[in-house]
Write a protein that binds this DNA or RNA. Structure first.
Lengths: 248, 248
DNA sequence: CAAATAGTGTCTTTGAGACACTATTGA
DNA sequence: TCAATAGTGTCTCAAAGACACTATTTG
């Protein structure tokens, strides 16, 4: 160890948000267009620096989330994702980003950004395919965030965070299908969800009709962990056959 | 956003390490004794500040790991755990810690610390029971790290990181039993491990005897993810304890 | 030989997926 | 009435756990 004159190097801390939602049964992520260098004009995740050195990281994330979505932030799912702190990720200097994953229900069409910069929902598929020019290492962050969501759907009640309450089982299934990108059997899904204790609870209200028999309504249940888990179809063998049911 | 005179507040970045190993079939964590304020004399995780603003975070973690264990760091498991950045966690100011999880095989008795501060392996059980006075929020970090390890044993080949190669299936089982704290059926475990593709591969060497029939030897296989997973016995009691506390 | 540990076979239970079937609405 | 969606019953298959059994070593 060296003399006590040495002091550790300071860094700048930002929060970045992977905000996911379902729009028309497609998984979408909220991206803004950068209005300044570096990466001027490219797409980026919503985020920004800490306001001051007394601001909690999670509060900074909540603040950004509220600014971008206009939502009452207390009710949305927000969790820490990972930290991205590579030396060269930001040309301005040593900027370390604390990435967060946020899940919100479908919002009224315009993103109620109080901010001037253009914000837009972009299909996850488009982003993951690399079709969007992303600033910094934000493509990596989005990729990690989506994978986190996919995994959490298996073991936690995260899917309910995508739904406006009350919701139907069919709506919940659409979440799974959109996030995982796989079709699921309606009937097995229905039984599975109802058999998982504390996942959903019946809503007092009646039913909702969409051209067929009205569906019962539910709300998120008390449990956050799914026992047993709702396992996604892992590609064990390249048996990618979608065995379709015979039309009757 | 405000005028361009405003600059974001800098923070100090540390890396902290939850280093786990098995000693006499017990899960242990490496703790050091602090030799200075704050928290002088209390136990803490190994860790420290970035050396300079060109040092990658993972390199700082590797450096600390090497200093504390003397191991060739290239071969040990090291992953980012979470970030802990609560405003009041360090009385010296705004210090944000990037916690890491490291898994090492059982080491020769003395911890080859090049550092003066006393380092010791402490049973995980003792720490989790709150019997150790821990500095900062390090008890929380250890708790999160152990839970991460428990979870990763199910879905990844992390258990092999606890073993010196070559190892026997029985040794691998001891890892699971120690980390999960549950006894497992030897025979079912044996079949399960061997049925999981790419988990372990037979070693060319012969066998190892411990008073009975000698056991075959294995090495870590090519796969890091376990398909199918090796599920731990979940307590079938519904939730109640799932207060997922976010890292601050 | 017995004691000890390694490794196999096989039964039972459970849960996931496939899919026929019934129920309840709107057009 | 039919088309459409909600919800139930039941079969089959595969994986997990229980556990009797065989195999190979040391003392």
């Amino acid at each position: 160890m060296q003399a006590d004159a040495w002091t550790p190097p300071p860094v700048l801390l930002t929060v970045d948000l992977v905000i996911l939602t379902l729009r028309q049964s497609r998984l979408c992520v909220l991206l803004v267009e950068r209005g300044e260098d570096p990466f001027n004009g490219m797409r980026a995740l919503p985020g920004g620096f800490l306001n001051n050195d007394r601001e909690e990281i999670v509060d900074a994330a909540r603040r950004e989330l509220h600014e971008e979505t206009g939502l009452n932030v207390d009710r949305v799912h927000l969790e820490q994702l990972a930290i991205y702190g590579s030396v060269d990720r930001d040309p301005r200097g040593r900027v370390v980003s604390v990435a967060h994953l946020a899940i919100v229900p479908d919002l009224p069409e315009p993103v109620a950004g109080t901010d001037a910069k253009a914000a837009a929902w972009v299909p996850a598929e488009t982003v993951l395919a690399g079709e969007i020019d992303m600033a910094f290492d934000h493509l990596q962050i989005v990729t990690d965030g989506i994978e986190r969501a996919r995994s959490h759907l298996e073991f936690t009640a995260l899917a309910t965070a995508f739904c406006s309450e009350p919701f139907t089982i069919a709506e919940l299934q659409q979440v799974y299908e959109a996030v995982w990108g796989t079709p699921l059997d309606t009937r097995n899904f229905y039984r599975k969800v109802r058999a998982t204790t504390g996942f959903v609870v019946p809503d007092t209200a009646g039913a909702r009709s969409t051209g067929g028999r009205p569906a019962r309504l539910y709300r998120a249940g008390p449990n956050t962990t799914l026992l047993p888990p709702l396992t996604r179809p892992h590609a064990t063998t390249p048996d990618a056959e979608t065995t379709r049911e015979e039309p009757t």
